[in-house]
Design a protein around this nucleic acid. Structure first.
Length: 675
DNA sequence: GCTCTCCTAAACAGTC
DNA sequence: TGACTGTTTAGGAGAG
C-alpha cells in the first residue's frame, strides 16, 4: 500500500518540483499572458458555451429522469438525446454544479448511472476548462499584479487523473488565486461526491466501470490514495462545505480573495508532500483511535476533541461534547454526506487491506513456491522447490532454494535435483509413512528448514519431511538444557507440527521406538526421572553412507547447486553470514571456509582418508577425533544450527572407515560409554 | 534381487 | 488397573 501511495506521491511531487513536465503542464507554462485578446474572447466563449452545454445536458437529463421516475436504466437514446440539447446562448452562465446540487441529485437518484457518467464527465471537463480559463488573461490581471509584487515566476504542474483529464495547479501558493483554489476545492467536492455515488452504484451493481472505461477519476481518487490522503480529502470536503455555505450567502459563487495569509494547499492529491510531511500530519491519527465505548467515552470523542471528521471542536467535558454532537452533527444532509464519505474511507481502507493481503499472499506464494503450478496452500521453503525439479533435467534446474534463502545454510547443500522422490506436492499432504527425508539422506541440518517453515508446519497438516530421529534430535537440541523428557518431546512435536496433533498413538510409538532404537539418543537418569539427550557423533555417523562413494552424484549435486568444483563465494559468504562455525578444532577454531568446502567435498565424495585425517589432512585445523568424540550435547551447549553440519565433518572424518555400514540397530556398544 | 533405511504396528516389561 | 515409558521384534515399502 505504501509503495503504491508513495509512487503516486512521488510522481506528483516530481511533477510539482519540475514545474510541470507533462505535455499539458509544459504548454501551460507558456504563459497565457501572450495570448491575444481575440483568443481570450474565444476561450471564454468556448468555455461558456461548453458550460452551457453541460448545464443543458444536466437539466435535460434531470427533467427526463424526473419524468421517468423509477426507471433506473434509461434507454440508450436517452443519453443520446441528452447530448443533443439545443444551446441557448442567452442562458450561458459560467457555473458548474455545486456539491450541494450534485449531492441532491445523487441522493434523489434521479439520474441513471449512464447519465451520471455523462454528466460528471462533462462537469469535470468543464471544471478543467474553467481552471484553465481562469488563467486566461482576462482573469490574469490579479495574478499578474500579484506576480509582479512577489516577483515569482509562476509554475504550473499537471496532475493527470485516471481518465487522462489534467488538472493544472499553480504550485506556488503566493500565486494561486483564491478563485482557482475555490474551483479546485469545488472540483474535489464534486469528484468526491461523484466517486461516492459511483462507488455506491458499483456496489449495488447498478454501474459497471470497465478498466478501460475510466471516464471518471475514480481510481485516482480512491485506490491511489493513502488513508491519510483520504482523511485530508475528507477534511477538505467538509471544510469546503462549511466555507461554501458561508460564501454562498455573501457572494455569487466566487470565493473571497483573502490573500492576507497564504492559503495552505487545499488539495491533498496535488500536494502530497504537504499532506505527508507538513501541517496535515496531525490529522492522520484521527481515525486510529479505538472505539472503546465506556460511560464517559465516545468513539467520536477523544482527548477533549470532537472526532467527527473535520470537526475537532474542543470541549471541556463529555456533556458538552454530547450537546455539540447532537446539535452540530445531527441527522441532516451534511452529516449524511460526511458519513458517506467516512464510509468511503473505511471502504477504501478495507480495499487497501484486501489488496495488501492479496499482495502478501502473492509474495509468500512467490517466495515459497518457485513453481509454475498454482498452489492453494502455503508451501514450505526448501521443500516444495523440489516439486518443479525433475530428474530428467537436474542440471538445468537452478538451485531454486538458494537464491531465495541465502540465510539458509542448508539450502546450498540440499541436493534438490536428486530429491525428486523425497517430497512432492502430493507427498506434502500424504499421510503415509515417511520415506526418505532429504535432510536425513543428505545429512542436511533440519533446523533452518524448520525455523524457516515454522509457521507452515505449525499450521499445515503436512508431514514434515524429516525422519523421526531428526525431529527428536531437533527437539532435544532446541531445548535449553539440550535434554528433554519423552513427554517434552511429545509436546515439541505437537507444538511444532500440526501433523503430529493427530494419530498420537502412532507417532508417539514411533518416537519411543526411535529413541530406543538409535544409539544417538541417550537416556539419562536424573532426579526428575529420565531425560533424553543426543549424542551428536552417533547421530552423524548414521548418515553419509548413501551419498558417499558416488563422485558422479556429488558432482551432480554440486553442479545442480551451481557451485562447480568448488563452493562458490556466495555459499561461503552465506555460511559466514549465518555464523556457521567450522569446528575443525576442538579448542580454538579459526577455520577457513576453504577447509569447510574441502571437508564437504571430501565427505560427499566419501574419499576421506580417515587414516590421515588426524594429521596429514591437507585441511587446516582438522582436529583429531578424541578431541570431539565424547562431546556431549549437555556438556557443549552449542546452538544446534551452529554445529549441525560442521560437526558432521569432524565426526565423519574421524570415524572408522566402515562406518558406512554401521547401523543404529547394532547394539554391541553400550550407550552408557558415551556418557 | 539384495541391501539399507525408515516407518508402522505390536508385544512386552517396568514404573507411577 | 490403567496410563505411561522404554525396549524389542516383525514386516512393509522406497530407494540405491
Amino acid at each position: 500500500m505504501m509503495q503504491e501511495s508513495g509512487t503516486e506521491a512521488t510522481s506528483d511531487g516530481q511533477a510539482s518540483q519540475n514545474g510541470g513536465t507533462s505535455m499539458e503542464g509544459g504548454s501551460r507554462e507558456g504563459r497565457p499572458k501572450s495570448a491575444t485578446p481575440s483568443v481570450e474572447v474565444t476561450a471564454a466563449d468556448l468555455l461558456h458555451f461548453q458550460q452551457h452545454q453541460v448545464e443543458q445536458s444536466f437539466f435535460t437529463l434531470l427533467s427526463q429522469s424526473q419524468q421517468n421516475t423509477g426507471r433506473k436504466s434509461p434507454k440508450p437514446n436517452d443519453k443520446q438525446q441528452s447530448l443533443q440539447v439545443p444551446v441557448s446562448v442567452a442562458m450561458m452562465t459560467p457555473q458548474v454544479i455545486t456539491p450541494q446540487q450534485m449531492q441532491q441529485i445523487l441522493q434523489q437518484q434521479v439520474l441513471s448511472p449512464q447519465q451520471l457518467q455523462v454528466l460528471l464527465q462533462q462537469q469535470q471537463a468543464l471544471m478543467l476548462q474553467q481552471v484553465m480559463y481562469n488563467r486566461q488573461p482576462h482573469h490574469e490581471s490579479f495574478q499578474e499584479r500579484h506576480m509582479l509584487e512577489s516577483d515569482v515566476v509562476p509554475r504550473y504542474t499537471a496532475c493527470v487523473y485516471g481518465d487522462g483529464v489534467p488538472l493544472f495547479v499553480l504550485l506556488s501558493q503566493q500565486q494561486v488565486s483564491a478563485q482557482q483554489l475555490a474551483f479546485q476545492q469545488q472540483l474535489l467536492q464534486v469528484q468526491q461526491v461523484q466517486q461516492q455515488h459511483l462507488l455506491n452504484l458499483q456496489r449495488q451493481g447498478l454501474l459497471t466501470i470497465q478498466p478501460g472505461q475510466t471516464g471518471l477519476p475514480l481510481h485516482s481518487l480512491t485506490q491511489g490514495m493513502i488513508p491519510a490522503e483520504l482523511q485530508q480529502l475528507w477534511k477538505e470536503v467538509t471544510n469546503a462545505h462549511v466555507k461554501e455555505e458561508h460564501n454562498n450567502s455573501s457572494n455569487n459563487g466566487h470565493r473571497g480573495l483573502d490573500l492576507s495569509s497564504p492559503a495552505p494547499p487545499k488539495n491533498p492529491l496535488l500536494n502530497q508532500h504537504a499532506s505527508t510531511n507538513g501541517q496535515y500530519m496531525s490529522h492522520k491519527r484521527e481515525t486510529h483511535h479505538e472505539l472503546t465505548p465506556s460511560p464517559h467515552s465516545h468513539p467520536l470523542y477523544g482527548h477533549g476533541v470532537c472526532k467527527w471528521p473535520g470537526c475537532e471542536a474542543v470541549f471541556e467535558d463529555f456533556q458538552s461534547f454530547l450537546k455539540h454532537l447532537n446539535n452540530e452533527h445531527a441527522l441532516d444532509d451534511r452529516s449524511t454526506a460526511q458519513c458517506r464519505v467516512q464510509m468511503q474511507v473505511v471502504q477504501q481502507l478495507e480495499l487497501q487491506l484486501a489488496k495488501d493481503k492479496e499482495r502478501l499472499q502473492a509474495m509468500m506464494t512467490h517466495l515459497h513456491v518457485k513453481s509454475t503450478e498454482p498452489k492453494a496452500t502455503p508451501q514450505p521453503l526448501n521443500l516444495v522447490s523440489s516439486v518443479t525439479l525433475s530428474k530428467s533435467a537436474p542440471e538445468a534446474s537452478p538451485p531454486l532454494s538458494l537464491p531465495q534463502t541465502p540465510t539458509t545454510p542448508t539450502a546450498p547443500l540440499t541436493p534438490l535435483s536428486q530429491t525428486h522422490s523425497v517430497i512432492t506436492a502430493n507427498s506434502l499432504h500424504s499421510v503415509g509413512p515417511m520415506r526418505r527425508r532429504y535432510s536425513e539422506k543428505y545429512n542436511m541440518p533440519i533446523s533452518p528448514d524448520i525455523s524457516q517453515n515454522k509457521e507452515f508446519y505449525m499450521n499445515a497438516d503436512v508431514r514434515p519431511p524429516f525422519t523421526y530421529a531428526s525431529l527428536i534430535r531437533q527437539a532435544i537440541l532446541e531445548s535449553p538444557e539440550k535434554q528433554l523428557t519423552l513427554n517434552e518431546i511429545y509436546n515439541w512435536f505437537t507444538r511444532m507440527f500440526a501433523y503430529f496433533r493427530r494419530n498420537a498413538a502412532t507417532w508417539k510409538n514411533a518416537v519411543r521406538h526411535n529413541l530406543s532404537l538409535h544409539k544417538c539418543f541417550v537416556r539419562v537418569e536424573n532426579v526428575k526421572g529420565a531425560v533424553w539427550t543426543v549424542d551428536e557423533i552417533e547421530f552423524q555417523k548414521r548418515r553419509p553412507q548413501k551419498i558417499s562413494g558416488s563422485p558422479a552424484l556429488v558432482k551432480n549435486i554440486q553442479t545442480s547447486l551451481g557451485y562447480g568444483p568448488t563452493l562458490s563465494a556466495a555459499f561461503q559468504a552465506s555460511m559466514a553470514e549465518n555464523n556457521i562455525p567450522l569446528y575443525t578444532t576442538a579448542s580454538i577454531g579459526s577455520p577457513t571456509l576453504n577447509s569447510l568446502a574441502n571437508a564437504i567435498r571430501e565427505e560427499m565424495n566419501g574419499a576421506m582418508d580417515h587414516g590421515n585425517s588426524n594429521g596429514s589432512d591437507s585441511s587446516p585445523g582438522r582436529s583429531p577425533l578424541p578431541a570431539m568424540h565424547h562431546i556431549s550435547v549437555k556438556e557443549e551447549p552449542l546452538d544446534p544450527e551452529d554445529h549441525e553440519g560442521p560437526l558432521s565433518l569432524v565426526t565423519t572424518a574421524n570415524h572408522s572407515p566402515d562406518f558406512d555400514h554401521h547401523r543404529d540397530y547394532d547394539d554391541d556398544q553400550g550407550h552408557d560409554d558415551m556418557l
